[in-house]
């Protein structure tokens, strides 16, 4: 009996100690990790979408609360205008979430560009969503407030051959992005106004 109690006590203490240590490390590295991700993964995608921006969109980002989550929005000043904003969304892929960076023109509600940022799709098949620019370029100039579906599901999106699930995930992410955008548009516009000053 004594041994039983000892086992429980030791395991409990060890687990709580480990939990505490992990929480501390996580808190200490959180900002740094976010910066690194912005620099190495999202940075290139943002640059790609907001081509020709005269400012640094990563440094000029702002956050808007959407329910429980805070979302990052990246502003690009292009030709002196601030009507293009990039933000993130995600969809369920073949294995795990597919992260998307979507650029949108606030005046026309049209997509400026889409980039896949983080994913864990099958290399050479689903990974084409990121590596093949032809796939994401088909979304350019479409209206974001729309439901996106792949052709086999009766939609308008050309799926990558052999990777319907991945294509479906990207479409889902875009549909999701449309919902977010519709909900937060007034707040985004508000933030952009203060930006012009």
């Amino acid at each position: 009996m004594n041994e039983m109690i000892k086992m429980v006590v030791v395991l409990t203490i060890l687990s709580s100690f480990s939990g505490g240590l992990l929480a501390t490390v996580r808190n200490g590295t959180k900002d740094k990790i976010e910066n690194q991700q912005l620099q190495f993964v999202k940075g290139p995608a943002i640059e790609n979408i907001l081509q020709g921006a005269s400012n640094d969109p990563v440094a000029d980002r702002f956050k808007i609360k959407d329910g429980d989550v805070e979302r990052n929005f990246f502003v690009g000043i292009i030709d002196g205008k601030t009507n293009i904003v990039a933000f993130e969304s995600e969809g369920k892929g073949f294995s795990g979430d597919i992260g998307l960076m979507i650029g949108i023109n606030l005046d026309t509600d049209k997509i400026v560009g889409v980039n896949v940022t983080t994913h864990s799709e099958t290399p050479g098949v689903g990974s084409k969503a990121k590596s093949d620019p032809k796939f994401v370029s088909q979304f350019t100039n479409l209206n974001l407030i729309n439901e996106f579906k792949v052709k086999p599901d009766g939609g308008q999106v050309d799926a990558i051959s052999g990777a319907t699930v991945t294509s479906r995930g990207v479409s889902m992410g875009l549909t999701q992005a449309g919902i977010i955008y519709k909900k937060l548009k007034p707040q985004i516009a508000e933030q952009l106004k203060s930006f012009k000053k």
Partner: peptide
């Protein structure tokens, strides 16, 4: 976590 923070 450390690797993500310092050697991404």
């Amino acid at each position: 976590l450390l690797m993500q923070a310092y050697a991404y």
